[in-house]
Each structure stands twice: as C-alpha cells, then as structure tokens.
Simulated assay, not measured.
Amino acid sequence: MTSRVTLVSPAMNASLREARFDDGAPLDARGAAAARAAAGTLRAARRVLVAPTVRCRETASALGLGEAAEQGQLGGLDMGRWRGRTLDEVAGAEPEALAVWLADPEAAPHGGEPVSALCARAGLWLERVRECEGGVLAVVEPEFVRAAVVHALGAPETAFWRLDVAPLTATVLSGRAGRWNVRLGQAPDER
C-alpha cells in the first residue's frame, strides 16, 4: 500500500510577516482570504488533522476542512521564553544563545524544545500514520513540515534550517516499504 500524507502550512498572519515566534495571533485578513480562495482545492483524505495553534485551526476552517481533529503532537516547536519575540529581538538580546540554537539541533537555550526533539516527534507521528488508508491531510506549523521532511529524507537534523516552507502550501509525503518521497511547496490548487 502506498502511504500519502499532505502537510499544509498555515496561511499568513502578523507573526509570520514579522518573523515572530508563534504568539497565538490569528490569521490576518489577506491570509484568511487566501485560505478561503483555496477551499476545495486540496486532494481529499480520509483523516483530516490540525495542529493546536490558532493560525492552523483558522486555516483549516477557511479551507473548508470541516471537523479536523486537533492533535497536540502536530504542534510547532516549543519556543520557551522566546515565544512571541521576533528573531531580531532575540538576536539583539541573546546573540550567543541564538547562534548555538541555529547551529546545534540538540540545543534549547530558550528553555523550550530542541529541534532534534521536534524531528523525533514528527518522525514518530509519520510512522504512526503511514498505514492510514485513504491518506492523511494535516494543517501544521512550518517547522513541523520541516521536521517531517528531515525525517522522511533521512537527512541530518542540521538540514532543518535549510528548508523554507511558504505559507499556505502543501508538502506531500508518499511512499511504501519504509521509504518516503517528498513533493515540496505545492500550492493547494496544484493537486
């Protein structure tokens, strides 16, 4: 059986525009409109899931995904005390800590979750949903998409920072026999 997992990144909001670590901000007007415009364009899946963040839930709703089941394990990277701060603010206040965090996937100077833990969590989730007949579609934070791709490709965790995930794009993981293929950055209407 071929497995198919589609990961959709949330539409744009103020936090994404400002390079701010998730602060619970809702979608902005343009992001919500873009998600509504993309409604009905994603390939159907038997299971529809959503990460427990405001922007993921609002994106799923605007896409018309109905009763998407919220799963905590799909959450983005726990940023600890950096939550709600911009990357520039952290760089100005804690340049050494930021440099360590960006270089070492095991580091968590912010007191939250290291990238390595997110990659492991995404890998475990992928292995659990691998056998879901009819496929899985999940609206998740961009960093969860990165972590899932790192796992799917068997890439080193340092590759996490080399992957860009644009807002409101679909990344499709498909495969069989313990091997994944990755299709990155697909716009929702490009099934």
Rank of each mutant, 00 (worst) to 15 (best):
G24N: 02
G24A: 07
G24R: 02
G24Y: 03
G24W: 01
G24K: 07
A25P: 09
A25H: 12
A25Y: 10
A25N: 14
A25L: 06
A25T: 14
P26D: 10
P26G: 08
P26Y: 04
P26K: 03
L27S: 03
L27T: 00
L27Y: 06
L27I: 01
D28V: 05
D28S: 12
D28M: 06
D28C: 06
A29K: 15
A29S: 13
A29L: 15
A29M: 11
A29F: 13
R30A: 15
R30K: 13
R30Q: 13
G31Q: 07
A33F: 05
A33K: 13
A33M: 09
A33I: 03
A34M: 04
A35N: 00
A35G: 12
A35W: 04
A35I: 00
A35F: 04
R36N: 12
R36F: 10
R36A: 07
A37Q: 14
A39F: 02
A39Q: 08
A39K: 05
G40W: 01
G40V: 03
G40Y: 00
G40H: 04
G40D: 04
T41D: 03
T41P: 06
T41G: 09
L42Y: 05
L42D: 06
R43N: 10
A44D: 13
A44V: 14
A44K: 12
A44G: 02
A44P: 15
A45Y: 14
A45V: 02
A45H: 05
A45F: 11
A45L: 00
A45D: 13
R46G: 08
R46V: 04
R47V: 06
R47D: 14
R47C: 15
R47T: 15
R47L: 15
R47I: 09
V48G: 06
V48A: 06
L49H: 04
L49I: 07
L49F: 08
V50E: 01
V50M: 01
A51T: 11
A51P: 07
A51I: 05
A51C: 04
A51Y: 03
A51Q: 06
P52Y: 11
P52V: 11
P52R: 11
T53S: 07
V54A: 14
V54D: 08
R55F: 10
R55M: 11
C56T: 11
C56W: 00
R57F: 01
R57G: 12
R57Y: 02
E58N: 10
E58G: 02
E58M: 02
E58K: 07
T59V: 06
T59L: 05
T59D: 00
T59W: 13
T59N: 00
T59P: 03
A60V: 12
A60H: 09
A60P: 09
A60Q: 07
S61A: 11
S61V: 10
S61P: 14
S61M: 08
A62N: 06
A62C: 14
A62M: 12
A62L: 06
G64Q: 04
G64M: 05
G64S: 05
L65G: 08
G66A: 04
G66N: 01
E67M: 11
E67C: 15
E67G: 13
E67I: 12
E67K: 13
E67T: 13
A68Q: 09
A68W: 02
A68G: 15
A69G: 12
A69R: 15
E70S: 08
E70P: 07
E70F: 02
E70N: 08
Q71Y: 11
Q71K: 12
Q71S: 14
Q71L: 13
G72N: 14
G72C: 02
G72F: 10
